[in-house]
Amino acid sequence: MSNNIDNNQNNVDITPEVNTGASEKVAMAKPSGQSDTLKKANKNLKRRRAISTFMRYFVLIVVGCIMIYPLVWMVGACFKQNSEIFSSMNPIPIKATLDGFKNAMKSYGGNINIWKAMLNTYSYVIPMVILTVVSSVVTAYGFARFKFIGHNVLFALMMAMLFLPQVVLNVPQYMLFNEFGWIGSDFYLALIVPTAFATETYFIFMLIQFLRNVPKELEESAKIDGCNVFQILIKIIVPMIMPAVVSCALFKFMWSSNDFLGPLLYVNTPAKYPATIFVKLSMDSDAGFDWNRVLATSLISIMPNILVFFAAQNQFIDGISAGGVKG
């Protein structure tokens, strides 16, 4: 449609319906020469524009610095000597040292160290992501494209689950998993198995939103060509909603790798601890308290998440937007 209104008022030689703010009346474009008042008006405008832009940048930069500073400081602190960490606000270490990282590599009696912990994390995060994606896509397809008996009731129930706090379910789920024998399972059963059953309502919701925007024509013609519903799902639907699927996968990856309460309840063996529990463990078990070691351990544990994020930024952002904004 029309241009972004804020950005193009530098030249008066433009079609008159595009307007600036305030009470300037733009005269018909004159091919040559400008009246004095017009020149002054434009100058005023330019200045106001410049100030506005400057203010925006200023706020963005200041707030941005405040936002990012804790992380920058954290990285710097990992390289500092312990005594130096709290002595100044400067993130750059005066006497850089790798002690923090060296100590972070420590294993607890050979049983578990940061790398093993991270491997543990991904050993269940990846199955969880795959299972979540598959089950969510299947469910979304079912709800979005079909009318079946009980559709509305079940759909409403599903949406209601969005608002069900996990807090209410923790206790009885724990007891249920206990009956199944999944507590302390070596295969993280209590964490993985539920994801095969589309328990993340947010993703189903997001996929359904996305699906609603996909035109049905392709499916119709495929049906005419003789494809059954399963083939339609795999050959047509999935490719079309790929961006949303990728978003789901990325989000699930992030959330699961940050999950603390789940492993806290269901993982009992230190050798099987994931990174989140390990970071807490590294705080508790050593004598003395080396902040540089603790922060280094923390930093390493979130490295994969940072890398994944930077690699897939756009998908993350698109995904979130798709969920929040209809249509």
């Binding site: 302390g184 009992n268 230190p270 463990l281 508790d284 078990s285």
Partner: peptide, 22 residues
């Protein structure tokens, strides 16, 4: 087969074990 950890939250894990009986 050994298993060990820090005291912090250890009792919680142990209690889980007593509960599930293993």
């Amino acid at each position: 087969e050994i298993n060990f950890g820090a005291w912090s939250d250890w009792e919680t894990a142990k209690a889980n074990e007593y509960l599930s009986g293993n």
